[in-house]
Design a protein around this nucleic acid. Structure first.
Lengths: 106, 106
DNA sequence: CCGCTATATTGATGTGCGTCAATGAAGGAG
DNA sequence: CTCCTTCATTGACGCACATCAATATAGCGG
């Protein structure tokens, strides 16, 4: 690493268009929220329309606290939002968040 | 959940266009690989062109084994590929993998 | 007010992950 | 062959996470 032939130095482009560390950290947080099969399935389910917690609990064969936990993570990541209607809490996808992710992969 | 008014049942679309569990698991693996700030930064760096490990080690202020570990995870996730040229190992992005991810977010 | 249901939170537990130091494997220079 | 450099692997450590049981909170119906 100390002394490299010129051709090696050139191929590595040390200071070219690097993303800001905070941007990388923020992106990583969103990706991490999607880094679990259950949460991917939840997002996929919500992509078909809003849904209440009880149906997700029934659909994924997980305990209700576990589903609530995943939904909280997705909400903290800004991927979903929730609204209380009577006894039920309805969760729905935030399309802009998905669009932002897709844009980051361009 | 046992007895719901009809309007609540309808809004939840229980069996509509759900993704296969294996597909969700596979997607989650890829997202998980991107769920770390260092790996996002590495991918961003590789997006500017292939790079050898020593430059990444220098760029991210991490130990060489740690960088190698992250690169292995990215390779296992199918996001990058490596090629040995002499003493150096060069890593580069697999554009199709990124495209696949972006397609999953459509 | 009193139950009943849906959801959220807490605590506990086992597993996985990010990191580094130490070591190993592979290739170039002499 | 011998040293040096690059990279990969192993082992260990601390922390984070996925999960559940138990409990708390909130809203509805009587």
């Amino acid at each position: 690493m100390k002394e490299l032939p010129v051709i090696q130095v050139l191929c590595c482009r040390p200071g070219e268009a690097t993303m800001a560390p905070e941007a990388a950290a923020g992106l990583a947080l969103t990706f991490k929220a999607l880094g679990d099969p259950t949460r991917v399935a939840i997002v996929n389910r919500l992509a078909a329309g809003e849904c209440c917690v009880c149906d997700l609990t029934e659909a994924f064969d997980l305990s209700q606290p576990t589903v609530s936990h995943h939904l909280k993570l997705l909400r903290d990541a800004g991927l979903v939002e929730s609204e209380r209607r009577g006894t039920w809490s309805y969760y729905r996808l935030i399309p802009e968040a998905i669009a932002r992710l897709r844009a980051a992969l361009a």
